[in-house]
Computed example of a mutant assay.
Amino acid sequence: MKKKMSLPMQILIALVAGIAVGLVCYFGGFADITTNYLKPFGDIFVNLLKFIVVPVVLLSMIDGIISMNDMRKVGSVGVKTVVYFLCTTAIACVIGLVFANIFNGAGLFPVLDAASAEYEAKEFGGFMSTLVAIFPTNMWKSFTDANMLQVIVISLFLGGSILAAGERAKLCRDFVSSAYAVIEQLMSFIISLAPIGVFTYMAWVVATQGSEVLVSLLLVIVCAYLGYIVHAVVVYSLSAKIFVGMSPVKFFKGAFAAMIFAFTSTSSAATLPVSKECAAELGAEDDIASFVLPLGSTINMDGTAIYQCV
């Protein structure tokens, strides 16, 4: 029986094919074809991912909390997760600043004309106002706005309440498990379309932006990507080895599909369904992954931290 090609390999082939098609369209002068006829399919795929993100986060976190069956375990995992995220983000900031200062000190960054640039920053209301804002006043509005921090808070309260209710909440437990099983099937179907999304988006990006953007900001991009590579190789390799005893090669091979899709979609939230699939294949406990991954897609922005510092 012929073995089916793995999703990461399909995505990689789609990525290379998209770049090739994009270059042909860029140099051939018909980039409009990718904008009018390819990008819409990528948009449809990303829309499907965004559509499923809220139910995935809501149901996976509630199901994860219920599966742990102990709020003390939930609290323990939550504290460890947040502490780990804070540490990796701090390391990412340091890496970004180190590389940025090296490049800037060597005079490698382009000097931009900021005379006509205007930007008025919004006033920061302080930590307490930010804290208040993550607690929703309207559950449905949190869902429709896809406010992921509020969705996470809702999940924590609902999951904790189901645990506290005990046997009286058996119907809710069964409903969450059943609904999550349905969402998982839907998620698998949408993820199977990832190569199409990657191909169409890469072809559009390369065809419309070509080499101009890359050339003008090449050294800035190089600086940022050096930071990404160092952070991924050092921090994530050590994390996999120290905390799980897993070979870094095995970890990156297992996470490849999520990494490639995050690269092409530039969205942590949209990548969440793919990340869940990768976590399952790597052997992560489902209840822990269901709880940790939604948190990570919302508050653990290491790549963004490096990018902002650069």
Rank of each mutant, 00 (worst) to 15 (best):
L38C: 07
L38S: 08
L38M: 14
K39C: 00
P40C: 10
F41G: 04
F41E: 07
F41L: 15
V46W: 03
N47V: 00
L48K: 01
L48G: 12
L48I: 04
L49Q: 15
L49E: 11
K50N: 15
I52K: 00
I52R: 00
P55G: 04
P55H: 06
V56N: 03
L58F: 14
S60N: 13
M61E: 15
I62H: 08
I62D: 05
I62N: 05
D63Y: 06
S67H: 09
S67V: 00
S67Y: 03
M68V: 03
N69P: 01
N69H: 09
M71D: 01
R72D: 13
R72F: 05
G75T: 09
V77T: 08
V77Y: 06
G78C: 11
K80V: 09
K80P: 01
T81K: 00
T81E: 14
V82G: 01
F85I: 10
C87P: 00
C87M: 14
T88V: 15
I91F: 11
C93R: 10
C93L: 13
V94E: 08
L97C: 02
L97A: 14
F99E: 00
F99S: 01
N104S: 14
G105T: 10
G105Y: 12
A106R: 10
G107A: 04
G107P: 00
P110Y: 07
L112I: 12
A117K: 12
E118I: 07
Y119G: 12
